[in-house]
């Protein structure tokens, strides 16, 4: 299957298009689910299911956001490829950091609020529960990528090593989706949706020639 026969003759979006408001807007969009969730908790609308089991709901919510942001950040380079819009690359680091941010919130609520820093139980979980092991590996990868995300780190690691390290996102994303798929009881629809989108985003990276 040839996914992309040729690059658009004229980019759909000008390569250099990057208005000043774009980055703050994307920042707000990425943060808005968290703001919305906190608002719901704070407003305490009677009958809001968020209020019944807030810890469980917060864990699920943050995990969902982490996966979503991970997929969005993985959509950046295919987007450039398909549209010719090179400016989108300037959003990639921020989106990746947001994915890590939600994954960290997810982990902290699990460890700090749900298990209340009961390290023995948490460690037993990591060793014994396969889906937690898998999720933990994904978070550790995202942590390494977040720590090495500043521009200075590219210089210090050297471009080639930095690239190799950051290719680990191709491991973290499937592990994240697997973690989700492994913990659901019966309804695999949402994890399969994530898996499908991830598969498309990875397929779009296949080295199909863009120019003849």
């Amino acid at each position: 299957m040839v996914l992309i026969r040729r690059a658009p003759a004229r980019p759909l979006i000008a390569a250099g298009w990057f208005p000043r408001w774009l980055k703050p807007l994307v920042f707000l969009l990425a943060l808005s689910p968290l703001l919305w969730f906190v608002l719901r908790l704070g407003l305490l609308r009677p009958g809001d299911p968020v209020a019944v089991n807030p810890i469980e709901t917060a864990i699920r919510f943050s995990g969902d956001q982490a996966l979503t942001l991970l997929l969005v950040s993985l959509a950046v380079s295919p987007l450039r490829r398909l549209t010719g819009w090179a400016g989108v690359m300037r959003l990639r680091r921020m989106l990746g950091l947001f994915a890590f941010f939600y994954a960290a919130v997810h982990l902290l609520i699990y460890a700090g609020v749900d298990q209340f820093f009961d390290w023995a139980v948490i460690w037993a979980d990591v060793l014994k529960r396969c889906y937690i092991t898998v999720g933990m590996v994904a978070v550790v990868i995202l942590l390494a990528l977040a720590v090495t995300s500043p521009k200075g780190m590219v210089r210090r690691l050297g471009g080639r090593w930095w690239k190799r390290l950051h290719a680990l996102v191709y491991l973290a994303a499937p592990l994240g989706v697997l973690h989700y798929a492994m913990m659901v009881k019966a309804d695999l629809r949402t994890p399969l949706l994530y898996a499908g989108i991830l598969a498309v985003l990875l397929l779009l990276r296949l080295p199909v020639p863009l120019r003849r």
Binding site: L41, A51, P54, V113
Partner: peptide
Amino acid sequence: LLAGAGVVVAAS
């Protein structure tokens, strides 16, 4: 106080 989400817990 610890949870941040505790308002909800106490209220319920």
